[in-house]
């Protein structure tokens, strides 16, 4: 059972206190942006073996959505950060690069 730290309230809690929300940093495609863009937005997910950026909500805590970078194989959590960004913070990218040489953000 994963441990996650909510970047808003600072609480470290068990997975059951959170609700998962799938891949992070999707770009929304609305009407008029073409079927390919819409299909990619709705259905295409990288499902990486390794570093994954994902959405979580502190559902049974402060209620805030936040984002996490996690290794889908080892379950290591590289960090969590507020959801009000369109890309992971550079410090987090650096941390992951150090821990996973050769990894580059998509």
């Amino acid at each position: 059972m994963l441990l996650l730290t909510c970047p808003y309230c600072g609480v470290t809690a068990e997975e059951t206190e959170f609700a998962p929300g799938g891949a992070a940093h999707l770009t929304r495609a609305g009407p008029g942006e073409g079927d390919d863009a819409l299909e990619a937005y709705l259905f295409h997910r990288a499902n990486p073996k390794g570093v994954h950026f994902e959405r979580w909500r502190h559902a049974y805590g402060c209620g805030k959505w936040f984002l996490a970078a996690r290794d889908t194989v080892t379950m290591e959590v590289f960090g969590t950060y507020p959801a009000q960004v369109s890309a992971p913070p550079p410090e987090l990218i650096d941390t992951i690069r150090t821990k996973r040489p050769g990894w580059e953000p998509a």
Binding site: G21, R28, G63, A83, Q84
Partner: peptide, 13 residues
């Protein structure tokens, strides 16, 4: 309510 908060917090913040 969660759906509303999702859009407000993560898309139209």
């Amino acid at each position: 309510h969660g759906h509303m908060e999702d859009w407000l917090q993560t898309e139209w913040w």
